[in-house]
Design a protein around this nucleic acid. Structure first.
Lengths: 129, 129
DNA sequence: GTCCTACTTCAAGTCGGCTTGAGGTCAAGT
DNA sequence: ACTTGACCTCAAGCCGACTTGAAGTAGGAC
C-alpha cells in the first residue's frame, strides 16, 4: 500500500500544487482528504497520483467538470466505460492534430520560405481542422 | 492564389467562428482584414486557414499571446525560429503525455479492476507528470 | 503564557477568452 | 420613403479556474 498519510504542506512540497488549489479541488470534489486532524486536512499519499492525473487531463484540455465525471475523488475511473472510451477517441483526434502541428512547427523553424501558407508541408495541418 | 475576398458573414459560415470572435481576434492582432468596404470588414480567404491554425494552437494549449508571437497576422510564422522549435518540443512532450493518457483511458474503459491506481498499465502516466 | 508557524474559512478579486447589449450605419428591396 | 438585415463600435458582463486577503485557530518551542 502507499496509503501513507500526509499533511497539506507535504502535498504542496511534493506536487508543486498550491494549497489554495488543493482546497479548491477538494471543494469541487476532484480530490478528498481522508480526515481532519484538528482543523487541518490529512491526505493519503495517493492524492499525489490523482493530482498528476488531473494535471495531465488539464493539459489534454478537459475541464474540471469533465475530470470529475471521469474519475471519482478516490482516483478510480468512472464506471461509465462508454464515456471513457469516448474521451480516449477525443484525445486521439487531438493527438493527431497536435502531431501534425508539431511537425509543421519544426518545418516552419527550418524552412526559410516567406510564403509559408503555400508550402504543402505546412498546409497539411489546416485540412485537419 | 486563393486570395479571394470574402465578407465577415462568409468567414463565419465557412469557419464556424462567431463574428464577435473574429473582431476580437482582429483587435488582438491575430488576424487582419485586408480593407474595409464602407464600414464592413473584407477578409482574404486565407483567413480561413489562419483560423484553423489558431484553433489547433488553442487545442495545443497555447494562449492567444503565444500564438500572436508565433505567427504574424498574415499567417506567416514568426521569424523567431528558436521559439518555434521550442514550442515544437513543448508540444512533443505534451503529445507523449496525452498518448499515455489515451492508452490509459482505453485501458480504464476495458479493465474491470476496482483498484485502478494499482494497475501497472494505468500508473505509467503518473510517472510522466 | 505567549510567540510562531502551519493551517483554517469565507468573500472578493484576477485573468484569459470571449459574449452580450445598446445604439448606430449602410445598401438593397418593395 | 421606409423597412430589413447585415454589419459596425464600445462598454460591460460572464465563465472557468484559481488567487488573495482578512481574520481566526491548533499545537509546539521557549
Amino acid at each position: 500500500m502507499d496509503s501513507a498519510e500526509i499533511g497539506i504542506g507535504e502535498v504542496v512540497r511534493r506536487s508543486g500544487v498550491p494549497a489554495s488549489t488543493l482546497r479548491y479541488y477538494e471543494e469541487r470534489g476532484l480530490i478528498a482528504s481522508v480526515r481532519r486532524q484538528g482543523m487541518t486536512r490529512v491526505f493519503s499519499s495517493g492524492v499525489l497520483e490523482q493530482l498528476a492525473l488531473i494535471a495531465v487531463c488539464r493539459t489534454a484540455g478537459f475541464s474540471l467538470d469533465e475530470i470529475t465525471l471521469m474519475f471519482s475523488p478516490d482516483g478510480r475511473p468512472s464506471p461509465n466505460r462508454a464515456m471513457l472510451a469516448a474521451k480516449a477517441d477525443e484525445l486521439d483526434a487531438t493527438i493527431r492534430k497536435l502531431a501534425l502541428m508539431r511537425d509543421d512547427l519544426r518545418h516552419a523553424a527550418a524552412c526559410p520560405a516567406p510564403t509559408h501558407l503555400e508550402c504543402p508541408t505546412f498546409r497539411r495541418v489546416l485540412g485537419q481542422a
